[in-house]
Design a protein around this nucleic acid. Structure first.
Ligand SMILES: [Mn+2]
Ligand SMILES: [Mn+2]
Ligand SMILES: [Mn+2]
Ligand SMILES: [Mn+2]
Lengths: 220, 220
DNA sequence: AAATAAAATTAGATGAATCTAAAAATTTTA
DNA sequence: TAAAATTTTTAGATTCATCTAATTTTATTT
């Protein structure tokens, strides 16, 4: 695996995520949006990544991540999520504070460091947002998960992940008492606006908006 | 404190170290040597650092670090040394393995991260090589230290630091049984080549070269 | 004090990564 | 399907950090 620049790693991660792990093609504009940059910069970078065979790129036709690109992206994602676990478990950060710092730490190059960090953390399988941590070979398994918005009335579930790591969203979840591991039961759903009433841990009754319901993932 | 690039931080550190904490001026060639780069690149960077008032630079006259430059350099050094402690104390790295990785980690920008790391490590005052760790304000105190080469026959001491963090040197110290905290007593000194015979922890008799003796620092 | 050597700076290139503005290709709509 | 709108790429700059080669300044020798 060749040594990539921070920018190359960030682009690869964006292509990987936007393509749903390499399932479908990704547009230049989608990447520009995700990375808060300009389409022209994206075109330029795609040309470079393509010449290194990290992506499959045909001008005007969108881009796909290659096998070697996917491998690199997964290692960066592994590092990102392990560092997030470290920050929360060891340094007592809140889950809304870790993403930004992990964006930097994910680019540190030292396989031994990551191996030791993984051991130190006890080989965690999920990060503080419920996202799976790939192993050294890029392998991982997801928990089965459904957005609260799609759960039926009277059904129960356990919160296993959040779809978005936006700090404001996470802080809001903190405030209303939703966290990974919380037990949920759907009490009522409002067809009109997609909001719902739920019971958390058999004691807290909450009204949540459609936006919240769509971004909280549960298993049953 | 403005945000500096990795390169700027590395140059500032080099100027700080080569000038003995800002005591005297530093030559362009010395910096180039220290950083394994070319004098032309150094001149260029000094011009840029000077325009940001991080160094005091007069063409052909050498460079001095400014007060704000010193402040920045000390924060990078603080991060470097805290990360080294983390790697050794928590991730079980050997003291010869940590410098390279800390060279990367020292550039992570997050004051809160460093504050938390410092707490997590129990506010260490020295790094794995015996170097002092500056506090948030850049303040630190050195242990009084003398190179073994300057200790008189029959005098004892405790190893408190090493002058060089070169992995080969540190591995050699491991092999012969010299470590931070070891008790030393000078048995004999050879005028001819500066080598000496010492007793470590009252039981291991060692012959060490001048090079070793000059780079092992003790207190009495 | 010249001549020579050494050290340092400048000139001019290069490669990454970004940008704005203009041009080209593709998609949508009328 | 032709026109309009949108998306994407290219052209041309800019900034940072580096390099080699040439020039200039300073230091050391005869
Ligand atoms: Mn990143
Ligand atoms: Mn995460
Ligand atoms: Mn560094
Ligand atoms: Mn050190």
């Amino acid at each position: 695996m060749i040594k990539l620049s921070f920018a190359e790693e960030n682009y690869l991660k964006a292509v990987y995520h936007l393509s749903d792990a390499g399932e479908h093609d990704v547009s230049t504009n989608a990447i520009a949006e995700e990375m808060s940059t300009k389409a022209a910069s994206v075109s330029d970078m795609l040309r470079r990544l393509s010449s290194k065979e990290l992506v499959i790129y045909k001008k005007y036709q969108g881009v796909k991540i290659s096998e070697s690109g996917k491998k690199s992206a997964l290692q960066v994602i592994r590092k990102h999520r392990l560092w997030e676990v470290f920050l929360v478990e060891k340094l007592k950060f809140n889950w809304d504070q870790v993403h930004e710092i992990a964006e930097q730490l994910e680019h540190i190059k030292s396989p031994l460091l990551i191996q030791r960090l993984d051991e130190f953390l006890g080989h965690p399988k999920f990060d503080p947002h419920g996202d799976p941590i790939p192993d050294e070979n890029g392998l991982f398994k997801e928990k089965p998960q459904t957005p609260l918005s799609e759960v039926d009335i009277n059904e129960t579930g356990i919160v296993v992940a959040v779809k978005d790591a936006n700090p404001l969203f996470l802080q809001h979840l903190d405030k209303i008492g939703i966290y990974l591991g919380a037990k949920t039961k759907i009490i009522d759903k409002v067809q009109f606006d997609g909001s719902m009433e739920i019971l958390v841990d058999s004691k807290n009754k909450l009204f949540i908006s459609k936006e919240i319901a769509q971004n909280v993932l549960v298993t049953n």
